[in-house]
Design a protein around this nucleic acid. Structure first.
Lengths: 202, 202
DNA sequence: CGTGATTTGTACCGAGCGGTAGAGTGAACG
DNA sequence: CGTTCACTCTACCGCTCGGTACAAATCACG
């Protein structure tokens, strides 16, 4: 029943990570509460008992899917922070985010937001989990920019934490826009403007 | 049954706009799908048949509540656009939005986003309605900034539409942050940075 | 004060929800 | 080649959902 390696018996007819990705898409498009078990199982290509034997519950399935999402998609955006300068890191972060929000490989927007900004009271910790994921990304940004501040790599008087929040905010707003159908070019034009705020006035 | 003035009969025991505001709060906090009829009726202080006699359905109730929200809360932010310069209009828009997103008078964040970014397929037009509301605000911003462009009131080479999108995006991102508990000061510090993008470099 | 119109409260409807029981199925091992 | 064991499938569970029927309650008006 658990994910331990089993000894014998009938082998599983599906790949766990594949069906997780399919589940993530459904949550992404319809939100946690809007994703019914019927929609999930049919998208995953498995039936209910298999889902419950493998993942335990709808909520645990969601957490697994979200974790995987975070480790793949979000990690990608975080890699942008390794750029040598603060400006380059911010630009890479915003540009790769804008691209990811509008790629055809998965639903538009961001699972961390569409998954459930507001939930019924009994699912409140779903929104909290998503918020914690976003906060972790913002913290990563802040740490990168704090380092930049020490290196004299930020405009004078610019606070690393506030700048991290600004960048993260913009990216979240882009996710909202993308979910509503904004194009990649629309988002990149908005990034162009945001970057003006980061340049040192001469 | 309709909202026409009735001639006689037992008078209504509640005020329509008051219960609409209560309903809006529930939708705001829990989203359209997360707001159950039981939660709605108990917050509104009326019972189911009264709700249905007055508003027709959950969806129509939501639309009425959202319209009222738009005509009151959102109209407030739009008033900021009447400032004499583009910079002042943008600043007023962002600052008053940040305040509204974090006031204690109603739930944090923005009904246009928390109401339902992602819905189950049968409620898809709820998200579309919300998106249309946000798009209308963005269009208002764009029109104000187009006028500014004609008046030479925008930085050189700045596109009014892209700038409107940038400002709206930031405000939406702030709504996401506010829904997750960000403080007013946090949002205003992000506005400070955003405004740097709008100033003309000297 | 009785009559008609309307709202109110209770109690209920079918449908779909998340979740599960239990028999059937099939690969791996002796 | 038969036993074992995990997985798969159909059919179902209790519950809550959005929505409603119906009768009691309460006003305006003659």
């Amino acid at each position: 029943m658990r994910t331990e390696t089993h000894t014998t018996g009938r082998p599983r007819a599906f790949d766990e990570e594949t069906v997780l990705d399919r589940a993530a898409e459904v949550f992404w498009r319809h939100g946690y509460e809007g994703a019914s078990l019927s929609a999930l199982t049919s998208a995953m290509g498995i039936n209910r008992p298999s889902l419950y034997a493998t993942f335990g519950s709808k909520e645990l399935l969601f957490r697994r899917a979200f974790t995987r999402y975070h480790e793949t998609k979000v990690a990608n955006a975080r890699a942008a922070l390794e750029q040598p300068t603060a400006y380059a890191a911010i630009e890479a972060f915003l540009r790769s985010s804008a691209d990811a929000l509008t790629t055809g490989d998965h639903p538009p927007g961001c699972l961390s937001i569409q998954g459930g900004l507001a939930c019924s009271p009994e699912n409140a910790h779903i929104s909290e989990t998503l918020a914690a994921g976003r906060a972790a990304t913002e913290t990563a940004l802040e740490e990168r920019l704090s380092r930049a501040a020490k290196e004299g790599d930020l405009p004078d008087g610019m606070d690393a934490r506030a700048l991290a929040r600004f960048v993260m905010t913009l990216s979240e707003g882009h996710a909202v826009h993308a979910a509503a159908g904004a194009s990649r070019e629309d988002l990149q034009a908005s990034v162009d403007i945001a970057l003006r705020a980061v340049t040192v006035p001469h």
